[in-house]
Design a protein around this nucleic acid. Sequence first.
DNA 1: ACATGCATGTAACATGTTACATGATTTA
DNA 2: TAAATCATGTAACATGTTACATGCATGT
Lengths: 181, 181
Amino acid sequence: MALRYAVLGLLSKEHLTGYDLTQKFHSHISHFWNAHHTQIYRELQKLEKEGLVSYDLVQQHERPDKKVYTLTDHGLQDLLGWMAEPPKPPSMKNETLLRVSLFHLIPPDQAVQYLEASRQTHVEVLNAMKQWGELHLGSADAPPSYELIGETLTLDFGMRFIQTWIDWCDYAIRMFRSFPE
Amino acid sequence: MALRYAVLGLLSKEHLTGYDLTQKFHSHISHFWNAHHTQIYRELQKLEKEGLVSYDLVQQHERPDKKVYTLTDHGLQDLLGWMAEPPKPPSMKNETLLRVSLFHLIPPDQAVQYLEASRQTHVEVLNAMKQWGELHLGSADAPPSYELIGETLTLDFGMRFIQTWIDWCDYAIRMFRSFPE
DNA sequence: ACATGCATGTAACATGTTACATGATTTA
DNA sequence: TAAATCATGTAACATGTTACATGCATGT
C-alpha cells in the first residue's frame, strides 16, 4: 500500500514520466525505498484508473510518445490523508542478518570473511551517500530550507544507518577473532 | 529467495511444525525477518516437494495431527551453499522515512507530533529487545557460546539500529523546532 | 460467555523480481 | 562495433498481506 505514496509523493513536486520516476527512485530515494520500472508502470496505470493522477501525451522527434504524469487534486488529498496516519513499528528484512544468525553453521574464518566483505560494501555505500548529499543538499552544517528538510533528514538517517552497520561489523569481527580457531 | 533459508535455518537447529516456525519467526527473528503463517505453510509444501525438508505425522490426543518437519541432507547442503554467497548492499524499505521525505507538505507541528510518536514506538521496541536478550542470552557482558554467537550478534545489531532511530528522532525534532512556525 | 491457544489450511489480492521485447540515438 | 540511453511495456513467477474457515481445549 505504500509504493503508490512514493509515486504520488514524487509527483507532488514535479510532473514526471514513468521513466523519470524510475530514475528518481534510483537516485533520490533509494536509501529508504526502491522499485523496478515494471512496478512503476503498473502502478501508474492503476493510479490513473483511480483518478489520483492524470497524464499528458507529449510527442517527441524520432522517439516514441511519452506520458507526463500529474498529481490530481484527489491524488493530493489521498496523499495528505496518508501522511496523517500514525507511525508503525519498524519491520526489518535483511539477508545479511539472516546469514549472521546462522553463523554457528560455518567456521569462524568464513564468518569473518563475510563480515569484512559486508563492511567494505557499506563503506562504499556511505561514500556514495556523502557525495550525493554534497551535490544535492550542499553543506551538511548549514540548515536546509523547509522545501529540502525531508530530503536532508532522510539522507541523514541513511548515513547514520550505514555507519551503524560499519561499527557493528567491526564489533562482530572482533568477537569472532576472540574465538579460538 | 530468502524466506526458504529462514525456514531451513530454523529447521537446522530443531524439528518444528509450521505452527512452531510461525512462533519462532515472531519471537526469535523478528528483528531481521518476519513472515505470516500462511507464507510459512506454503513454503513448507514447496520445500517438501523439492526434497529439502521431510516431515513426520504426529498424532495428538483430541487435537488434529501435526507435521513435524526435519531438514534433509539435501536441504542442509542447499543452506550451506547459500551461506557462502557474497553479501549484497542493504536495501531499505521504510514507511516512516517515506513520510519524512514528504514533510514539506505538512505543517511543522504535525511533523514533530509524528516524530515524537515514532520515537515512542522505537523506545518500546528497544525495551522489549533488551528484555528478550536478558531472558534468552543472559548477560550482555559475558561472551556467548559459539552456538549462540549468531543470535547474540543479530540482537546486538537490532538494538543498535533502534538506538540509531531514537537518536535520529531527537535530532529531527530539534531541527523542526528550530524553524519558525 | 468470550477470548486465547493449538494447528492447519484456502482464496484473493498486492507487491516485487527477472526475463524478454522494440527501435532509434548517442557515447566509448 | 558494441554499449548505453530514452521510453514503453508484457509475461511469468515469487513473495507478502488480509480475510475467512475449522474445531477442540483452556483460561478470565
